[in-house]
Every structure is written in C-alpha cells, then in structure tokens.
C-alpha cells in the first residue's frame, strides 16, 4: 500500500488530532443492547484506559474500533476515515496501521511464535532479512527471543500474551488496541505486561486504547513512567500522574466517566466511588 505516501502527511498532522472518534455509537446482539450512545475520542499520542465490569461490552468496543464489528447506529472514525461506512475490503489497508492484542491472545495455533509475529510482515512481502531482524527485535522487546520455534500451545498464558503484544507492535502501528492484557494473570506477570505497555507508550508514544477490569493495573499505568536508561518502569513523583493517560468507564452499556486520573479519583459520583473502593 501507499505507506510512503501516508508517512509525510502523518508528520504534518497536528499532534493532538483525534486518531479514534466514536459518535453516538450503539450496538446490540440478538435483541440484547450492549453499547448505547457511546461518544469519545482518542487523540494522537494519548493512552486511554477503558474500565468496566465483566460483560459490559469492552471487547465489543475495541472490535468496533478495528472495524471487526459494525455499529447498529452512530459513526466511528479512525485516522480520519469513517470506518463504520467502509467496505470490508477497504478496511484491510487501514487495519495494517492498527495493532490489536486480543483478550485470549488469539495466536495462530498452527504457526510457531516466529511465524505468528512475522505474519503481517510476510503478508506484506517484506524482505526475509528485514522480517528476521524485526521479529527478533519485537520478541526482544517482550523478552521472549528464546521461544522463536515454539508453538503457542507450548507457552504459558503470560508468554502467549507477550507474543500477542509482539505480533501487534512488529509492524510499528500508529494505533494500539489492548484487550485486557493482564486478564487471568498473576500479579507479577501482570506488572511485567503493564511495564511493556508503559514502555511502548513512553518510548514510541503510540496512541493506544487499553481495556482492563483490574483497577490496580490501570493506576499502575497512570502513575508510572518508563526510564530508558535503567530499562525499567519507575513511579512518578507522589501526586503526579501521566498526562497522556486518561480514563473511561463503561457501565450498563453507557460511558459513565471520561476524564483524567485526577478527575476520576476526586469524583463524587456514587457508582464511581463504589467502583473504585
């Protein structure tokens, strides 16, 4: 595709242009309404954390943002294009600029770790040596370079999640969608994964939308930054939070909160208070 034609335009774009916009989006399945009248936007370079109880429609919202599902009502824009009105075949070039980490990893179980990560590059006919180099780089980012020739079924859940992250970032996407990257993992592995997300945010400044139902992970993300020299995550000074990171909370199909970390912790809303406690 016209990757090179897109790139210069990207650099000219004002840095705070919205990358994802939802306008009055509703969707239901078999008569059951899941999301109702959702509107929000994710600006360039921002990390937005989407919280909400189980089954509220967080995964559905993320799939809507990648055009994998279509809204019943409302409009969705990604990179300024209205994906809710595009045909499936026109979505493929757009999706190449988006990386998504599925809730259950969704690795191709018949391919090795290396081929999973290399999948998109191979489809785009990138030269073999470049694939080799970028796959190794992506797997080093998630600290899994030793698993190249293993199959997904031979990995632990946390390792699979990290391979899924490597697969999403290998093409250097302009937008990252993470679906519950820490779901079902122990606290130590969760922290490792959050550290990767923080690293991606602070080193590459990729715009991202992250779903989680673990509050502690969300606050970890908002209250830490990545120290490149030490190659690890470190807490921000007491009382500070990352400016590019903000929150959205879904409840019963509606967006009940959209704002900064500060607004969230100081909110008087009874539901939010109960949810946060």
């Amino acid at each position: 595709m016209s990757q090179s034609a897109v790139a210069p335009e990207l650099q000219e774009r004002p840095p705070r242009d919205p990358v994802v916009v939802f306008e009055h989006v509703s969707i239901g399945f078999e008569g059951k309404q899941v999301l109702q009248d959702i509107s929000f936007s994710v600006r360039h370079g921002e990390t937005r954390i989407l919280l909400g109880p189980a089954g509220v429609g967080k995964s559905v919202l993320l799939k809507l943002a990648d055009g994998l599902l279509r809204p019943d009502e409302g409009r969705i824009f990604v990179f300024g294009e209205e994906i809710s009105a595009m045909q499936e075949k026109d979505l493929y070039p757009l999706r190449r600029r988006i990386g998504i980490v599925f809730q259950e990893s969704a690795l191709f179980d018949s391919l090795t770790v290396k081929d999973n990560v290399a999948y998109r590059l191979k489809e785009e006919r990138v030269p073999e040596e470049e694939i080799q180099q970028r796959v190794t780089e992506a797997l080093r980012f998630v600290e899994l370079e030793h698993t190249l020739d293993k199959f997904p079924s031979e990995l632990s859940g946390g390792m699979r999640r990290r391979v899924a992250i490597a697969r999403a970032i290998v093409s250097r996407p302009d937008l990252l969608l993470y679906d519950s990257p820490t779901g079902g993992l122990d606290p130590i592995t969760s922290t490792t994964i959050i550290e990767l997300v923080v690293k991606q945010r602070d080193v590459y400044h990729t715009t991202s939308l992250l779903v989680t139902h673990r509050l502690q992970d969300a606050f970890l993300l908002a209250s830490h930054r990545f120290n490149k020299e030490a190659n690890q995550m470190e807490p921000l000074p007491e009382g500070h939070s990352d400016e590019q990171t903000s929150f959205m909370i879904l409840n019963e199909g509606r967006l009940v909160f959209d704002g900064s970390t500060h607004d969230l912790v100081h909110s008087d809303d009874p539901f939010l208070k109960r949810y946060l406690s």
Partner: peptide
Amino acid sequence: VTEQIDAMRALGTD
C-alpha cells in the same frame, strides 16, 4: 471460536 479469524482480519488478511 478462538478469535483467530478476527486476528487474521485485524492483521490485514481477508
């Protein structure tokens, strides 16, 4: 059912 088809679509393959 394991979302691999969705993953394929997400990775830009029909």
